[in-house]
């Protein structure tokens, strides 16, 4: 497995981090041909956009339709019977637990994940990127290997241990990994980022007598803002969407985050209230969509420069 850890792997990502080079733009074409090409480009791109965004639009449109019209004869996205009824039903929640509670739970987990990941990943990344110590490259290789490791191999023993410790049905199993930098992707991302910061910075600070703690807190952290922002956004969204973790560890509906509540909703409402189910799905995605709209630039840049997955 050490082969996975060869330092060649991050290379392509790093190349991408460079400033954009000039794009091929042949000068020989006539203005008319250019214009025609541009029109074709936009037609194709817009058609693609429509196809790609259709599921999301359909979902949002359906959430405002009465039950009978979803998947019925009314194929248009817009319904004249527009109403918020589905959302009202969905807000009631399940079996006495309100949807607001599920929201709060998701939020607590996501914020916990962000705080934990930022703290632990930045500290660990500093060690990998800026401190020379024996065994560093071996550990770095192991960390890269965990990126590729199917996590199913650890879930059973992890479960047993948390069970023995009486921590099932608490948020501890879901959050402890975040505080211990278990999401190697974020450590890797920050290591890559820090390595690109000039080495003269800490050398100068060292000459001034600064220790690692001071270099880390007063020089590195402020400079790492872009990486910290990408990390926060992605760890928030990943935690928000996480399904398997809560499925394994949480028992009480009042502790459920939204994805689990959604599933419960699908199972429990045997009289299949499709509309409410879709309305709840929309609500569960809302924070992610808002995040995307607000931080869209950071997110897409983060992906292109750091090779993050969605």
């Amino acid at each position: 497995m050490t082969t996975m850890a060869t330092p060649t792997q991050p290379k392509p990502v790093k190349q991408a981090a460079e400033a954009p080079a000039p794009v091929y733009n042949p000068k020989s074409e006539s203005a008319g041909a250019k214009r025609a090409k541009s029109v074709i480009f936009h037609i194709v791109a817009l058609a693609l956009t429509a196809v790609v965004l259709y599921p999301a639009l359909w979902m949002i449109a359906s959430s405002f339709k009465p039950n009978a019209e979803i998947g019925g004869s009314n194929t248009s996205l817009w319904s004249s019977n527009f109403s918020f009824d589905n959302f009202v039903t969905a807000m009631e929640g399940i079996g006495g637990v309100s949807t607001l509670q599920f929201f709060t739970n998701s939020l607590v987990l996501a914020v916990g994940a962000v705080v934990g990941t930022i703290l632990s990943a930045s500290v660990s990344a500093y060690a990998f990127a800026r401190i020379k110590f024996p065994g560093r490259s071996i550990f770095f290789g192991m960390m890269i290997a965990t990126l590729l490791l199917p996590f199913h191999v650890v879930i059973i023993p992890q479960y047993i241990v948390f069970q023995q410790l009486g921590l099932v049905d608490t948020y501890v199993p879901l959050l402890i990994g975040k505080f211990l930098a278990a999401d190697a992707f974020f450590v890797f991302l920050m290591v890559q980022f820090m390595r690109n910061l000039p080495a003269e910075l800490d050398e100068a600070a060292r000459i001034d007598g600064a220790g690692h703690v001071r270099i880390f807190t007063s020089i590195m952290l402020p400079l790492m803002k872009p990486a910290l922002i990408s990390t926060s956004i992605f760890s928030f969204i990943w935690s928000w969407n996480d399904f398997l973790g809560p499925l394994l560890y949480l028992n009480s509906p009042e502790k459920y985050p939204l994805p689990l509540a959604l599933r419960l909703f699908v199972d429990q409402t045997q009289s299949s209230d499709y509309g409410a189910m879709i309305a709840m799905s929309v609500m569960a995605l809302l924070p992610v969509l808002v995040f995307f709209l607000v931080f869209q630039r950071y997110i897409v840049e983060g992906v292109s420069t750091q090779g993050l997955k969605g």
Binding site: Q163, P253, D267
Partner: peptide, 21 residues
């Protein structure tokens, strides 16, 4: 009180029983 659907119910009980909980 706590509840779940039938299939998930037995997964939960088994894992709880394993930990004595």
């Amino acid at each position: 009180g706590n509840f779940s659907d039938f299939a998930g119910y037995w997964q939960k009980r088994a894992t709880e029983a394993a930990g004595g909980g």
